[in-house]
Every structure is written in C-alpha cells, then in structure tokens.
Computed example of a mutant assay.
Amino acid sequence: MSENGAALLDEVEAFHRRFNVFPLEAAYVAVALWDAHAHLVDAFDSTPRIAFLSPEPGSGKSRALEVMETLVPNRMMAANATANAMFRAVSATETRPTILFDEVDAIFGPLAGGDEQLRAFINAGHRRGASTWRCVGDGSSQTPTEFPSFCAVAMAGLGSLPDTILTRSVIVRMRRRAPNEVIEPWRKRLNEPEGHALRDRLAKWAASVREQVDGAFPEMPEGVSDRPADVWEPLLAVADAAGGHWPARARVACVELVKAAKQSDKASIGIKLLTDLRLIFNGAERMPTAHILVSLNSLDDSPWADIGGKPLDARALAKRLGEYVTADNDPIKARNIKTGDGVVKGYYASDLHDAWTRYCPPLPESPLLPLPPLPRRSDPVDR
C-alpha cells in the first residue's frame, strides 16, 4: 500500500516541532516541504537553499540542521568545507549529497574575508545543469574539467548572507526560545534512528510521486513571481503531490515567508540605501552629498552611522549608488550643484527616480494626516 503523502509530511513536521522552535508557523511548513524536496531534487529545474539565520548565538540554528540531517538523503555536514571539496562531492551524481552548512557566518559574516568560490558554488548550484570548471592535473598537463554543482543546500549562521544567496533561499530568522517555549532535548542515539525511519519513508514516497512532480508547474500564489517563484516552485510541487491540507498550507506559508523576506532590512543594503534616500529627498530636486551623509548618519533605524566600524562617507556612498543606473542606463553618480557659496558635489532626484521606482517598496497610499491646529484662546476647549 502506498504511503499517504499528507500524513507523512504531518509526521515530518511533528518531528521538527519536538526539537525546534521556529519563529513562524509558516517556517514549519517550509522546512517539512524542503526535507521532502531533497529526495526529489532531480525532478526540478531548481532547488531552493534554506537558511536558518539569527542575530545572536543560542537560537536553535544548529539544532535545526541536526534534525534536518536525519531526514534528507546523503547528508553532508560541511562546516569549514572548501569549495574544491564541494565541487568533487557534488560531481558524484549517483550519490549527490544534501549539503548542510553550519556556521556559514565564518565565511560570509562581517568579520570573515569571504570565499568567492564558495559563494559562486552555492549560487550556481541552485539551477539544474549548473557546473563549475576547474583545471585538474599536475603542472603543464592540467585539463579543464567540468564539475556539476546542482544540489540541495541548507545553511545556518549568525547575521545575514550575500544578497545573491538570500534571494535563492527560504529564510527562517531564528530567535532564542522564550521561557514558555519548551522542546524535547535532542538525544542523538535515541532520536537519530527516528529521523532515519522518516527519511526512508520519504524516499519511498518520493519515488512513488516522482513522475507526478517531474516537470510540474504548480500554481503560484498571487503576487509571487520571478526569483521567489523559482524558490517556491519545487516546494509547492511537493505539497501538491502530498495533497490533503498541504497545498493550501504551502501557499499560505509561501506568501508569508516571501513577504517577511521583502520586509527584512538586511535583505539588501542597497535597497535600504535607496529607500532612505527617497525619504531624505522628500520631493527635493537635488541635494549636496554633505547634507545627504549627515541625514543618513542621523537616521536612528538605519545602519549608515556604523558601516564596518565607521560612518558612511562620500566615497562609500558613491560606490554603492554606482551599482544602480539612471533612466538613461548610466551609473548613478554625484554631479555639480550650484549653491550660494559656489559649486558642490551632490545627487539629483531625477538620477535616482528610476532606481526608486524599480527597487523601493511603494510609498504608503494613505499618508498620515497632519495634526489639527492647536486651539486659540478664544476657541472653546473641552474640559
């Protein structure tokens, strides 16, 4: 008798709930679907990364990976692994690993030097058919060799990740457990076999629905398109194959987590800068760089007063804005502005407007109404 997919996913979700406290109900849905999708990676055109991130240690990120490790196929715990090791591990397609990368902040965090090869590997491996080329051999007899990089990747770390990885990921922003949030202690010898039993059942169920999900294009929730749709398409296909309440729950979770990712200030430091500039300009046609920097660095809820240990300066502002272009497709850059004291460098709203339109969230449709005028002495006052 074939496995009931909906009931099996219910059990996978319940297993996570025993040992993990996630910040949103949607996260439990996404994680259970991600576990199942790892058994069906070859049926999809892309595989979403999943990232457990938090601002502080002790928030349950590593425990989430520990539980997940027991549920996915060919798991490979990859803390401190090199890019070259990844290339070679994933190239064995018959036993393609599911990579579980803990303490990823040691590579991509603010105090780390970064690893461009590893970042490129994680980015490229999200899409079927992606490969990395390396020269293999000794001395002058090296041969260019193709290493497939398509595989499922889960990550856990402090802080954030490069924007290119974030946009390819389901983001679960972890937090420390409150006193009333009680979970079971994780006992590897006792609980790992339970996870493995679920893993084996997931593998059998995945084999039974592979033809159903292979090439499927599930209906996306309204408003979810482009990169978020790429991320969620495999998870929704799994939910549709499972049936029961999972298709509806998956779409609700999709909308909630996509919205949460868009609202995150750390999702893109560039978009945060553009949004803050739109606020500062507030209808002005142009503004000197010095005035912009004072205004940015005085915003209480923005990071500009402490970028790498120092306030944002004119050079850093120019570098960040130069990554965006005007409506004429020219890089945004400072221009001369005439003032009463001469000519200074600054920025024009007309140069920024196209980037504001494309990248910033819409302005509120109903701005706050002005405060009523104070009553005059001759006006009656309610007592």
Score class of each variant (00 low, 15 high):
351 D>W: 04
202 L>I: 07
160 S>M: 05
354 D>K: 12
36 A>S: 12
35 D>V: 11
368 L>A: 15
58 G>Y: 06
141 S>E: 15
380 P>G: 10
378 S>R: 10
126 H>V: 07
165 I>Q: 00
154 A>W: 00
25 E>D: 14
288 P>R: 07
97 P>I: 03
347 Y>W: 05
213 V>G: 07
294 V>E: 14
125 G>W: 08
255 V>A: 11
311 P>V: 09
53 L>W: 06
6 A>L: 04
280 I>Y: 00
171 I>L: 04
210 R>G: 04
363 L>P: 05
122 I>M: 14
97 P>H: 04
163 D>W: 03
107 I>L: 14
155 M>R: 03
334 A>V: 08
148 P>C: 03
89 A>P: 08
60 G>N: 00
45 D>I: 02
342 G>S: 02
76 M>Y: 03
355 A>C: 01
264 S>Y: 03
45 D>R: 13
1 M>G: 15
349 A>H: 02
204 K>N: 10
297 N>C: 15
166 L>R: 06
166 L>H: 07
214 D>W: 02
228 P>S: 14
180 N>Y: 14
38 A>L: 09
11 E>K: 13
284 A>F: 08
270 G>R: 07
306 D>T: 05
74 N>H: 04
176 R>Y: 06
197 A>C: 12
369 L>S: 12
138 D>M: 14
377 R>K: 15
85 A>T: 08
219 E>P: 03
354 D>N: 09
228 P>C: 13
180 N>W: 14
322 G>T: 02
239 A>W: 03
154 A>D: 01
243 G>P: 14
352 L>P: 00
152 A>E: 02
51 A>Q: 10
42 D>P: 09
353 H>V: 12
218 P>N: 02
200 D>Y: 07
109 G>Q: 12
30 A>P: 01
152 A>K: 02
150 F>Q: 01
227 R>K: 05
248 A>P: 08
369 L>A: 14
59 S>E: 01
233 E>L: 14
74 N>G: 00
141 S>P: 02
256 E>I: 15
212 Q>D: 15
265 D>G: 13
64 A>C: 08
304 W>Q: 01
372 P>A: 11
238 V>L: 06
31 V>I: 05
305 A>S: 13
110 P>D: 06
47 T>K: 02
59 S>M: 00
216 A>F: 02
352 L>A: 01
96 R>H: 09
221 P>R: 13
53 L>V: 11
49 R>L: 15
113 G>V: 06
288 P>F: 05
270 G>C: 12
12 V>E: 01
346 G>V: 00
291 H>W: 11
216 A>M: 07
129 G>L: 13
332 I>R: 05
153 V>C: 06
46 S>E: 15
86 M>S: 12
210 R>F: 04
263 Q>R: 13
265 D>Q: 10
278 R>W: 04
288 P>I: 06
13 E>G: 00
233 E>P: 03
227 R>L: 07
352 L>R: 00
336 N>P: 05
383 R>T: 15
277 L>A: 05
260 A>T: 09
379 D>G: 12
174 M>V: 02
125 G>K: 12
55 P>F: 03
23 P>Y: 01
64 A>N: 01
221 P>S: 09
27 A>R: 01
303 P>K: 11
245 H>Y: 03
33 L>A: 06
11 E>Q: 13
249 R>C: 11
39 H>E: 06
331 P>G: 03
84 N>A: 09
76 M>A: 06
345 K>F: 09
330 D>R: 09
100 L>G: 09
